[in-house]
Amino acid sequence: MQINVKNVAKDYGKRLNAVHAIKDISLEVEKGEFLGIMGPSGAGKSTLLNMISTNERPDHGQIIIDDIDMTQLHDRELAKYRRNKMGFIYQSFELLDSLNVKENIILPLALNHANKKFIEARVKHLNYLLNIEKLSNRNVDDLSLGQRQLVSAARALINNPEILFADEPTGSLDSKSATILLNYMQLINQREHATILMATHDAFTASYCSRVVFVKDGTIFSEIVNSGKREDFFEQIINMQRTIGGGSYFNVSENN
């Protein structure tokens, strides 16, 4: 087991205005697993993902990754761990608009003082893979939302992370770009045995996962395991979405 989430909880706001975003969730993720986190808006998916990815500290509970309790690490150690082992694809891209596309992509490697030749080789490889070679010298402001998400993905993948966190990675992508990205994520999951945790409310995107947990009102409602056949898994996800929210809470793709 690579990730062990033990009884974590998180509140936002103070006293009377407090919102219980996550209420005592426990979760285990094996190494090399592709885990989907689904749930209606406001259910706590992103909060859970942010806590596991150490972007936010839980109010109580433990998050143990590779036998290290992340909640006990100091800021500097946490940053080092994240930089070396983790990759992040955010819903809001989180690109630095003062840097161009190439600079944004290579930033995690530069932060690790990686070899210049290695940096150049990696960026070339990812540009080719995600078909963003032509964007290399462009400013982030000049990109479409879909292009930004691909750049964000390239940045997350450049240092071959052991754990990849993705928050709605396909939310801004057209179906072709989404498929390319998801296929690549599946590839690194299978070949490199990278663990992937992905929050989404899109059933098609979730169908790439090996397991999906459903979050509702800050707690885990249920989970489904992919038996190996994607079409069946997709059906199961849609059924679970209907069970949770009567079908109206989720973006169920009609084409799939």
């Binding site: 972007n55 800021d75 500097r76 946490l78 940053a79 992040f88 989180e94 608009d97 932060l111």
Partner: peptide
Amino acid sequence: DHEWRQLKTLKKIGVSNQE
């Protein structure tokens, strides 16, 4: 705002408070 956002983004991609 965008200058704030950039510092926040750095934090999100693994830059420590010290840096």
